[in-house]
Amino acid sequence: MKKDIILCGVGGQGILSIATVIGEASTEAGLYLKQAEVHGMSQRGGDVQSNLRLSTDPIWSDLIPKGEADLIISMEPMEALRYLPYLSKQGTIVTSSKPFVNIPNYPEESELMAELDSMPSVVKLDIESVAKDAGNARGANMVLLGMAAPYLEILSVEQLRKAISVIFARKGEAVVEANLKAFDCGVAASKG
């Protein structure tokens, strides 16, 4: 079994934390993993993405070929669309529904949403509001990971929860609990 995932968003939205949690869970589960990140200039308010490949068998390429991503997990709706050529025909998009507008030529929101909705498998949620309601305004990325969890298949919800505990442990118990709560809200809002 293998899962090819594109994680994306805008620099500073915390996609690398999502990648780190999935990476920890995969390592713990004994899966093969490759995770190509973007560092450097693109961090500053520009588009960022990470190619994440999980498999029970060895993985060759660090990059996902076009048309082979099982999942696009995006912190921002337009950024989800940026990677459409990489999505497989049966693939799913899990995305925040709230545009992050830091450019003058951001597309018309209703048309953007219509294009997203025209895709066969899309899960959208205002993850920032959910995170705020859960008392963890900075936990939107963990809400998103929770939403994506049921689609990951190669990793269980429990394995991901454990990884969150490990990754955030050095920041203290309160941070771990807040992130788990955000994650659980995401899971509940997803297909469950």
């Binding site: 337009m78 459409l84 999505l87 025909k89 951001y106 294009e115």
Partner: peptide
């Protein structure tokens, strides 16, 4: 190539 979708229309 197994690419199923082209470039999105609403993209900047």
């Amino acid at each position: 190539s197994s690419a199923a979708y082209g470039t999105a229309k609403n993209l900047a």
